[in-house]
Amino acid sequence: MTDKARVVEPRDIQTKRLTVHTRMTGEDGFPVVFVHGNCSSSAFFETLLSRLPKGLRGIAPDLRGYGDTEPKPIDATRGMRDHSDDVASLMDTLGIQRALFVAHSAGAGVVMQLAIDHPERVAGLVLEAPVSPYGFGGTKDAEGTPCWPDFAGSGGGTANPDFAQRLAKKDRSAESQTSPRNVMNGCYVKPPFKAPNEEALLESVLSTRVGDAHYPGTFEKSPNWPGVAPGTTGMNNSFSPKYFNLSPFASISQKPDVLWIRGADDVIVSDTSLFDFGYLGKLGAIPGWPGEDTYPPQPMILQTRRLFERYAANGGRFQEEVLPDTGHSPHVEKPQEFERLAFPFLLEHAR
């Protein structure tokens, strides 16, 4: 769908909120804003940006705490609004009133929050492996009911401490199951897939700022299983259901079309997520699990589908596409299939 690879230009853009490192393609065309997920950066979109069809202008910021954007702290009590407000401010600085969005994983939570707060600014949404509308961890049914009143099992205390330590040390090895390289190759994609630009993607993962203000954030001790509850700062707390709830998306005043793309074998955002304490408890990987009635695996896919069904009942439109033999990053693992779905959608809604 592209004649030749487009040049991707890195730029540091000073907005009213912070300096945002941004990858960009072209000055003309309808704007498409690409928003990356947790423990990554805009570098995950480098190839996709270079293949963007004519008529579209690519803009891919690094979120605060990732890549080369100014690492201002993340106030998790605002949910993901620090990030969505940063994206809106970047659009303001670039003179963009309305844009299309392509968002991966936690980035989908950012752009859906932006759509709730500024629906008039969203022309269409491509959501790739989107985080549940009720965040990550601590909920037990399609409506996002919390397992415990303090939302234990979500937030900064749920991150693997060895992974976080290796991330902070910028460990490039493959010596441990929890090394960033092995987590990326084992969970971001479906093994045995290895990205041709593996080293660049690993560098992107290692750009994550580690600490209380960023990844994974703070946590509180809890009397409820698994013993940790959300803190108030940092990325993982920003998508704790204590602070993050996208249910208002179903009734926003203007309803952009939604293309939902996910991999059939995603182990991160899944009804059987290997990062969800409910599922890990059921597997016996975390002792003391209180059982299916109290703390079942979080039904992440079901939660997302129910929200979009309510969105459709209120006059919106969504399309769900599931790519077989694909993990958490369809645009990396199956680029041609992803582009075959996403590019026509973007061109159709570039108005």
Rank of each mutant, 00 (worst) to 15 (best):
A213N: 13
E143C: 10
A152V: 08
V183Q: 00
W148G: 02
K221C: 11
L202W: 10
P223F: 11
K190F: 11
H104F: 08
D150A: 07
A115F: 09
F163H: 11
D141H: 03
Q113G: 06
S173Q: 00
F219D: 00
R172I: 13
I116M: 06
L206I: 15
E175F: 04
A164Q: 03
E143H: 11
G217F: 08
N182R: 10
T233Y: 07
T145Y: 13
H118W: 13
P161K: 07
V205Y: 12
T145V: 03
G156D: 02
S207E: 12
V183T: 09
E175G: 13
T139D: 02
G135F: 07
A213I: 09
Q177D: 01
A213L: 13
G234K: 02
C187D: 06
G138N: 03
G124C: 12
K169M: 15
W148N: 05
D212Y: 04
G217L: 10
V210P: 10
A195V: 06
A129K: 02
M235F: 15
D162L: 14
A213E: 12
R121L: 13
E175A: 06
G186V: 12
G211C: 13
A123P: 14
L202E: 08
G107T: 01
W225V: 10
A123I: 15
P192L: 06
K221Q: 02
K194G: 08
G231S: 05
G211T: 14
D171L: 11
G211F: 14
D150Y: 08
D212F: 14
P223M: 02
A159D: 04
A152P: 04
V131N: 00
D150V: 14
P149I: 09
G109I: 08
L201V: 08
G137H: 03
K169V: 13
F136H: 08
G155A: 07
D171V: 12
E175P: 08
G227A: 02
F219H: 10
E120M: 07
H118F: 15
F163Q: 00
E203S: 15
S132E: 01
A142P: 07
H104M: 07
G217S: 01
A174L: 00
K170L: 11
K140G: 07
V110C: 03
S132M: 05
P130W: 02
D171H: 08
P119T: 06
T232D: 07
P216E: 04
R209K: 15
A174R: 06
R172G: 06
E198L: 14
G95Q: 10
R172D: 01
Q177L: 09
L100K: 02
L127E: 01
G138H: 03
K194V: 15
K190D: 12
V122N: 00
A164P: 03
Y188V: 14
G217Q: 05
N160C: 11
A229L: 12
R121V: 14
K169P: 09
V189A: 12
V131G: 00
S179D: 04
T232P: 03
G157H: 05
K169S: 15
P223L: 10
E175N: 02
T145H: 01
D150W: 09
C147M: 06
R172Y: 11
K170N: 10
T158L: 09
D162R: 12
V102P: 06
G107H: 07
A115Q: 01
C147W: 04
C147H: 00
R209A: 15
V111F: 11
T208R: 05
A200I: 12
A164I: 11
Q97C: 00
M112E: 09
